[in-house]
């Protein structure tokens, strides 16, 4: 739900302000790759109606955001192309290599799924780099990144809950480790987010 909220905040910003200033297209494209490689089981692995609907929402909204940033006349002009310089392959290639080395089963679907878990953990990095370079971070962008970080932190709590409360719960070390790293990457952002919130000041990251 926090993940869904983050997407709603981002779409709200882009749609109402007709601007994507401060939003990293690189991170959006990495997320698209994360969702495509993870939800290859969309038709073969039915978990629940909720699960299927959320998968479709995450996939379509991410491609919608990318379309807005690349294709929409006004939104495209507000994109900070010169600042958003992080290279995809710096993250994609190491994650692919890691997925080929560390996985639970050597099948195409499993390796791609593992790759998506690793890539998700670091997909925020281009956005954090852009954020540091952006002087005026608007509230919607700040809250968007906060929700994007919070959903994995909340997963950590959910994993602990499931571990103790569910009888047939399986240990999933790859997901747990990647989730911990993903949350740790946000630690710095969370610190400045709460600091600015407490002081009622505009969010600003130190250079």
């Amino acid at each position: 739900m926090t993940h869904l909220a983050s997407i709603c905040l981002l779409l709200l910003k882009i749609h109402t302000m007709k601007s994507c200033a401060g939003v990293s297209l690189k991170t959006q494209e990495l997320y698209a790759l994360v969702f495509v490689t993870r939800y290859l089981d969309l038709f073969s692995n039915f978990v629940s109606m909720y699960n299927t609907i959320m998968k479709i929402i995450f996939l379509s909204s991410t491609f919608g955001i990318i379309w807005y940033m690349r294709g929409h006349k006004l939104v495209r002009q507000s994109y900070d192309k010169e600042q958003d310089t992080f290279r995809h392959y710096f993250l994609v290639i190491p994650c692919m290599v890691l997925a080929l080395v560390i996985h639970s089963k050597f099948t195409l679907l499993e390796v791609l799924w593992t790759f998506s878990i690793y890539l998700e953990a670091v997909a925020i990095l281009p956005q954090l780099v852009l954020l540091q370079r952006t002087r005026n971070i608007d509230n919607l962008t700040g809250n968007y990144i906060f929700c994007l970080g919070a959903y994995r932190a909340l997963y950590l709590l959910n994993w602990i809950y499931r571990y103790f409360m569910e009888k047939n719960y399986h240990a999933q070390w790859i997901t747990w480790m990647a989730g911990m790293i993903q949350t740790a990457i946000y630690a710095d952002f969370f610190y400045y987010y709460f600091k600015s919130w407490k002081k009622n000041e505009r969010l600003k990251l130190p250079a």
Partner: peptide, 10 residues
Amino acid sequence: TKTAAPKDEL
């Protein structure tokens, strides 16, 4: 042998 964790998360 242990079965793999079912993929029930997003």
